[in-house]
């Protein structure tokens, strides 16, 4: 899978590239608009991550070019501006998603995967982690081919974990993922805990291994040890 990161901050781009590289993405980086335009013209990317404010222009121009080329790339806007207008405009001209800086790498990763999944839409397309099979479209989960009934939040939580396997996922990143950016309650951490307990129990009931590992004080890790 090829990604293009259009981001003028070198350190940010490097961190993103490192995290996403470990996820198996091949990342290319453009630090200004001209280079980005050149790259999207020459190569095909599964997903393009665009920062709107670039030193030599507006990142939205890249989206315009991609749309003119009838590209099938997924597009995620990353912006320091959390303005509803920008968000709406970005989505209107064809972006698939919008993330506000600063974001969690695990969140970006999950969004990229979701966008790529949607782009290569296939109802049969399932996300598999060992004995867990998740169908993101039908919102169904099966463990060892046995259906597991999850609440919406439990389902989102599981998909978030499976999208970021073997990663330490912070509690606040989970809270933001489940309740949005405006949601921030200390209590929500307790809730994540009780939610996780339910999820773990439901999965284990079907004979699933215990993949949810607690990283004390920080968050959780979804891994097969």
């Amino acid at each position: 899978m090829n990604l293009l990161l259009i981001e003028d901050e070198k350190e940010l781009a490097l961190t993103m590239a490192k995290y996403l590289g470990e996820e198996g993405f091949r990342c290319e980086w453009a630090d200004h608009l001209m280079l980005a335009q050149e790259k999207v013209w020459m190569n095909v990317y599964d997903c393009v991550i665009v920062d709107i404010t670039l030193p030599d222009g507006n990142g939205l121009e890249v989206i315009d070019r991609l749309k003119k080329m009838k590209s099938n790339s997924g597009i995620i806007i990353v912006s320091a501006k959390n303005a509803l207008d920008d968000r709406i405009r970005g989505l209107e001209i064809g972006a698939d998603d919008y993330l506000t800086k600063p974001f969690d790498l695990s969140e970006l990763n999950a969004r990229i995967k979701a966008v790529i999944r949607r782009r290569n839409f296939d109802a049969q397309n399932e996300v598999v982690f060992h004995e867990i099979r998740i169908n993101p479209y039908a919102h169904t989960v099966a463990v060892n081919d046995m259906a597991v009934t999850l609440t919406k939040k439990e389902f989102d939580l599981l998909l978030y974990f499976v999208s970021n396997p073997n990663r330490v996922i912070t509690k606040s990143s989970i809270a933001t993922h489940l309740w949005g950016e405006d949601m921030y309650l200390a209590d929500s951490f307790d809730f994540i805990y009780s939610h996780l307990k339910n999820l773990r129990k439901k999965l284990q009931d079907k004979g699933c291994g215990d993949y949810i590992e607690t990283v004390y004080g920080i968050g959780y890790k979804f891994s097969k040890h």
Binding site: E9, E11, L12, T15, M16, K18, Y19, E22, T53, A80, K81, K101, P102, F103, D104, L105, S106, R167, V168, T170, S173, V215, I218
Partner: peptide
């Protein structure tokens, strides 16, 4: 606006370090 970028770097670097 300018605060966002360094903040994003701190946040992502530390998240990356957690791994």
């Amino acid at each position: 606006h300018e605060i966002q970028t360094p903040l994003a770097i701190i946040k992502n670097k530390s998240e990356s370090l957690l791994q």
